[in-house]
Design a binder for these strands. Structure first.
Lengths: 203, 203
DNA sequence: GTCTATACTCGGATAGAC
DNA sequence: GTCTATCCGAGTATAGAC
């Protein structure tokens, strides 16, 4: 029983450290944030941080390991929606919700940069983004079946592109301004612009 | 005359150093690229690099100072186009062209990171992106006047959003795959989706 | 488990000879 | 202008006491 209690306590401490690390990484960047700084924010010594995490890179990954359950819940919540297109817009809106938070943009940028040379990190965020991508693809297929989405679109490729658009909202984030209208209009226009509508045939 | 020759020689050397720096920053990131490494790539000593640039941050900015003339030329080239919408798509295509180059994505990410705490860098890239944004806005206004673009759209805000979409193509870049079709379809859908078309009024 | 103290490495920047 | 040599600060990670 003591064993179990210890495990939980360790998990809590890891969570606490990861939270502070995430905050500081987002605000200052990975390299510009020292382990000593994170330790101070938590109220422990640098050495203690290394007791809970093997190295600094593991600390960064921990921040994103927390996202997977949230992504799974989000997709599950909309999987059985009656209106696929509407569900897609809702999912995108949820994903972009954090974009309003200043610092979320910084964290995305930091993630993209580090993902290029940390295979373990790629694995962590890859799982999360696959869950979202596949969930969106399923909705796209249903939207096509319903005749609401252009059947010429490839579901997986389109889902990937929609995720990229969400990333764009993060990059475009500014305080006191919500990118949701642009996002919805963009996705809507992309999904439902049938070739016959998009091209001008006047003569 | 000797004075002029020297100036040109210095400019050439600066250009040479900036080119190597850009390549390495894109591939490895700013902090992970040492000045010594850049110096080696050019074939000079680290001290010589500091003869041409005050510090490492100035070296990074130099990479982007070269973009302004190109942006001005791009906008000027399309300013008098007969078909505004078509011109906008062409401009976006040109902007996204570099996205195919592996490493361009890395450089964008690096830029976004560093821009947050280097005011001088913000000034440098700000000028370039303003030129593009204003150029696009002018085309959008003309597209609205022609009745090809939804008049409900705010030109400046829309131009800014289109730039964000271009950034998204960089993030979505993968080798052997061009994001141009997605980009064109997205912009087209966004600009020309009139509210009366976008909403389904079946009953 | 958490600390203090520190070993070790590395990178930016400068001094001063040539 | 370009070099060699070097200073200095910072940061990761570890050793070992408690």
């Amino acid at each position: 029983m003591a064993r179990r209690a210890d495990q939980e306590r360790i998990a809590q401490k890891r969570e606490q450290i990861a939270a502070q690390a995430g905050r500081l990484f987002a605000a200052q960047g990975y390299e510009r944030t020292s382990v000593a700084e994170i330790a101070t924010a938590v109220g422990i010594s640098p050495a203690s941080v290394f007791y809970y995490f093997n190295d600094k890179a593991a600390l960064f990954r921990a921040v994103f390991e927390r996202d997977l359950p949230a992504a799974e819940a989000l997709i599950a919540r909309h999987a059985d929606a009656k209106e696929p297109v509407s569900a897609i817009l809702d999912v995108l809106g949820e994903l972009a919700k954090d974009a309003i938070d200043p610092g979320a943009s910084g964290m995305l940028v930091e993630l993209l940069r580090r993902a290029e040379h940390d295979p373990d990190l790629i694995a962590v965020v890859g799982r999360t983004s696959e869950v979202v991508r596949d969930g969106l693809a399923v909705l796209i297929v249903r939207g096509i079946d319903d005749g609401d989405i252009d059947p010429a679109l490839d579901p997986i490729q389109t889902a990937t592109w929609l995720q990229a658009i969400v990333d764009a909202t993060y990059l475009n984030a500014r305080p006191g301004y919500s990118p949701l209208p642009e996002l919805r209009r963009t996705a809507m226009g992309y999904l439902t612009t049938f070739p016959s509508q998009g091209v001008d045939h006047r003569d």
